[in-house]
Nucleic acid binder design. Sequence first.
DNA 1: ACCTGAACACCGTTCAAGT
DNA 2: ACCTGAACACCGTTCAAGT
Lengths: 204, 204
Amino acid sequence: MSPARKQPRKSYHHGSLRETLVQKAVELLKKEGSEALTLRGVARAAQVSQAAPYRHFADRRALLGAVAEDGFTRLGEAMLGGVQKGGSREGFKGFAIAYVEFAMANPAQYRLMFGPEVANHSDLPSLQQTSRGVLGFVAEGIRQLQAGGLVREGDPWSMAVALWATLHGLVMIHLDGISEGVAPPLPVLLDDAMRTMMYGMAPR
Amino acid sequence: MSPARKQPRKSYHHGSLRETLVQKAVELLKKEGSEALTLRGVARAAQVSQAAPYRHFADRRALLGAVAEDGFTRLGEAMLGGVQKGGSREGFKGFAIAYVEFAMANPAQYRLMFGPEVANHSDLPSLQQTSRGVLGFVAEGIRQLQAGGLVREGDPWSMAVALWATLHGLVMIHLDGISEGVAPPLPVLLDDAMRTMMYGMAPR
DNA sequence: ACCTGAACACCGTTCAAGT
DNA sequence: ACCTGAACACCGTTCAAGT
């Protein structure tokens, strides 16, 4: 959301172009799909020249990285909202449902977040920090479940990766239409998978 | 691999251009990365004009679909090779290791298989059939484990999706560098995740 | 039937020039 | 400091024309 800007527009040629570009890129991606997400198109949407974005992004990949980062940030917020009561079984389910709902509501941006265009976050430090923050959030959830006796002992980071991996894979297999028609619908798949994970991570 | 062709080249202008194009595309993807995978570039590599591929592929996406399909086929073969003794715990581990090894050996093609460019296999019937075949192969493995008493009762398709999802997600989180530095290295993550899945799917 | 050559509209990126 | 205009090399796609 961002606090209301003091002088909304029109300082020199724009208020703050960087933000506007990312915002327009997210909109373009949502409305027109990933093929429409071009540097020139985003510049047009922001009503600046095609060269202007280069003052704020090194290249196309850097802009896409910022869009992916926006996605991870919003995904994290959605997950946090889904947890509600932390540490409980209901929180666990709510978190998983919120995750899948975010992906279904923003499929193109979700794909971009894991897509080849921004592959390997290592040279996009800000993006890497944000995506790791999401992993850290999941790991923290695992720690709370461990403290509550619902999850066995073990490296919370490793469990967080496994849990996130299962959710991500589920979303992709569904989005790609691989399971369509042969496996149960997504809500059932999600429920089954989360039950398996919960049993698998339970104390014994 | 493919059986040695009878008349290798030079019939009219080419032997069978379609195969050659897919093969060159796979090579380009591996050697030059995904940005280099252009229709014109593939045509150049196959030594035909830029318009020639349009006799065999409706558009760029159709060619990428064929490359993705080649990937699913080879992934399936690798998994089959990794199973060795089907139905046993060793087969289960071998299958998971073969999966991850394929992805690590062919990262660009692996990303393409799940990437936005071929998103939603629904309108690429041949690709959809092949990717579903891989899912069917995993489901068959689940059935054998059920028959052997190592996996509890339940829809094999749903369990296959969950298992595949976990492997895919693990690969992506690793390839994107999200877990880098904060979580254990890939072999440990894989071992932990597969242990969790096996416990989660075990009879009780 | 299968391929070529030329053309069109578009893209990422660069760079001198403007304010 | 920030943006524009023009240019370059490249791309996906189409289409008349060749064999």
